[in-house]
Amino acid sequence: MQPTNVYQGMFAETIPLRGANSDIINAYFARPLGPGPFPGVVLIHHMPGWDDWYFEATRKFAAHGYAALAPNLYARAGHGMPDDVAAKVRAAGGVPDDQAVGDVEGALHFLQSLQYVNGKVGVFGTCSGGRHAYLAACRVKGFAACADLWGGGVVMSAADLTPNRPVAPIDYTANLSCPLLGLFGEEDHSPTPAQVAQHEAALKQHGKQYEFHMYAGAGHGFFYHDRPMYRQAQAVDGWQKVFAFFEQHLRS
């Protein structure tokens, strides 16, 4: 929030973006007006798709002074309403992890190429996007901070592995290359509190910098104000933690 006498403005549009395998996908880009320098953030959308909530979240980051880019990880499934496209991806077992990581890397490089970005880029994701954010922070060099919000499937049993998701993200923890913020709900079924504890143990084992917050009275997706799982107090506190974390690691 800015004082009432401070100029505020932003620019937001969909753009083409070079993703995995040099494929051209689309992305939603929002940035503050002005010369910068601004930190960058890549937002990785959730299982319900590249939808309104993610467009709003992208503009929210821009309003907080970030050049924010949300790639459409489902672009290769064709175009239509977000839920129809996401349903097609769901039926196919999700997007391949390698492809998602490549798309996120493309978004990172785009932001790094902008003269008004300060060189520091974070990655943020919720639900399957939280899992993808963690994967990217482990497998791609260049991120300065990672926020994983209730990413399910970071901990996976051998039976859960598929050709699209051949390695459990927790197994990449030794390669995590930036500080990590994790926000979770005690009532979530994916990830469960036990899985979050297992993830935390791996981070400790490898000496990684992280902060996890487990919210009572909240389950999966407690930021989603358009869904019944929304939890007002936890969401307000969670957003404050997200921006405090990114301010510390991306703007200082």
Partner: peptide, 22 residues
């Protein structure tokens, strides 16, 4: 996760024709 139902999870059925697009 459903798109519309007010549930964390739901049994979803999509009747589709992939040749005609999403």
């Amino acid at each position: 996760h459903p798109f519309h139902a007010p549930l964390e999870h739901a049994l979803t059925i999509d009747f589709v024709n992939e040749a005609l697009g999403p």
